[in-house]
Nucleic acid binder design. Structure first.
Length: 437
DNA sequence: TGTCCACTGGAAGGGAGGGCTT
DNA sequence: AAGCCCTCCCTTCCAGTGGACA
């Protein structure tokens, strides 16, 4: 007995020492990483320049749009109310940057001649209800004591009027990705804001609507549309040369001299140009490539790093959007993913429902109704994760024909990192569930 | 040509979680 | 504390529908 106990103690002691040693080596590895990082000069000099919300002093190749918007807003310098503006253009064509840039300049100019201008920026993708939009405007104008829920919408609208009208000023409200608000909550709040000037005594409000959905006008009430699109500015995609100029400007500001190849910038520009001339993507590529180069201990950013960044940028965007979904939407997407992996060619709502219900049973969630699944499918379609056109199968009814629009590997990776779903994503278990269908 | 399938999607409303006013 | 209002997520009900098939 005693001997056995001793042996156990002995083995335990050895195991403990091994574990400790492993930890020591691991810790020294981590130390090495930190030390190396500190020793090497960083590729970046100012990483913030490559973030999405950075607005540089000059916006290359947007001179015409800047002039146009400045011309419209200039009325304010003479005490007039500028027209409302609608700006169209695909993602990464500089709409938001131009709007913020011109307003920043207007505020500077205004304060120089004693006029007060302010602007509030709302991204409607993240504020899909009327109430939340108004609360965000209030927050942007410095009113932070508004609860995120609980008050009547009229009440917060009155509050907004008071906050704006306390002194003589022009307030411009920028609604970015406006289509998201209108598609989910209608255009009530827009209608009220287009008429807000009637209630204001000292101040004035002008609106800038931004969207990348050209067909979106159809959703708007004609009164709102005519008031909102007094002026329209269309943003064309950047070409590869223009994107290269943008990257050159940003690289100069963000990266240390001599740490990047011109060829790498040209490649990033060309890749982003293929993707409808998206400057945001080009800048993302540059930032991620520089991070990869740094991680690899390389002191120069090359084309190779840009290629590597391409995958990482795509993956990050998709995985992040999947991780942010509510649980029920994740479960529906998981059902679609399993069907897709089983090489189902025509995935219908009914099939998704069947696999989804089995998934709920397996994981221990109570399933939602078919009606709700249908709404979730529409939400996933809005996010661009799937397409789901309604088709008629004649005698076999009408349904949505669902297709995954993002790489299945990215979806699976997002689910694997979530412990609730990691078991299900394991092939064997998923097979069993699928066979039960 | 009418039937019928498998849904779609609008409308109304419930209830949980939250806040303000009286 | 009661009454009212909000959002978000959801249910229930139900009329409508495109097209294969008998």
């Amino acid at each position: 007995m005693i001997r056995v106990k001793h042996i156990h103690l002995y083995t335990f002691a050895i195991e403990y020492v091994v574990v400790l040693m492993e930890q020591v080596t691991w810790l020294s590895d981590v130390d090495d990483i930190f030390d190396n990082l500190l020793k090497k000069p960083s590729i970046f000099t100012n990483k913030r320049v490559l973030s999405h919300d950075f607005i540089p002093e000059k916006l290359p190749h947007r001179e015409a749009e800047i002039k146009r918007l400045a011309f419209i807003l200039a009325t304010a310098l003479k005490g007039g109310k500028p027209s409302n503006v609608f700006m169209y253009g695909k993602t990464g064509t500089g709409k938001t940057a131009v709007a913020k840039y011109v307003l920043k300049k207007l505020i500077e100019k205004g304060s120089a001649i004693g006029l007060s201008f302010k602007y509030a920026y709302v991204n409607c993708r993240y504020r899909k209800s009327n109430y939340r939009v108004i609360v965000k405007i209030l927050e942007e104008l410095g009113e932070t004591r508004v609860p995120s829920t609980g008050l009547p919408t009229d009440f917060v609208l009155d509050k907004l009027i008071k906050v704006i009208d306390y002194k003589e000023q022009l307030v411009t409200i920028i609604f970015d990705e406006l289509d998201w608000l209108v598609k989910s909550s209608g255009d009530d709040v827009l209608y009220q804001l287009t008429r807000i000037n009637n209630d204001l005594k000292k101040s004035q409000v002008s609106l800038i609507g931004i969207t990348n959905d050209l067909k979106f006008r159809e959703y708007l009430d004609s009164r709102v549309l005519s008031s909102l699109s007094e002026e329209n500015i269309i943003f064309k995609p950047y070409n590869a040369q223009q994107l290269y100029d943008i990257l050159k400007q940003r690289a100069r500001m963000a990266l240390r001299d001599g740490t990047y190849d011109d060829e790498a910038l040209k490649l990033a520009a060309a890749l982003a140009a293929q993707e409808h001339g998206d400057a945001r993507r080009a800048i993302d590529l540059l930032r991620v490539a520089a991070e990869i180069a740094e991680r690899e201990g390389s002191n120069r950013l090359s084309s190779e790093h840009i290629y590597k960044a391409q995958d990482e940028v795509d993956r990050d965007v998709i995985e992040e959007s999947i991780r942010d979904l509510p649980t029920q939407e994740q479960l529906v997407l998981l059902a679609i993913t399993i069907l897709h992996r089983e090489r189902e060619r025509k995935i219908t709502t009914g099939m998704v429902r069947s696999v989804y219900e089995q998934l709920c049973d397996f994981i221990g969630y109570s399933p939602v109704t078919l009606r709700r699944i249908n709404d979730i499918l529409s939400d996933l379609e809005m996010l661009g994760i799937i397409t789901a056109p309604v088709v008629s199968l004649g005698r076999y009814g009408r349904t949505k024909l669902i297709r995954l629009e993002v790489p299945i590997s990215s979806v699976i990776r997002a689910f694997k990192n979530d412990e609730r779903f990691s078991d299900v994503i394991n092939k064997k278990k998923a097979d069993i569930m699928f066979k039960q269908k």
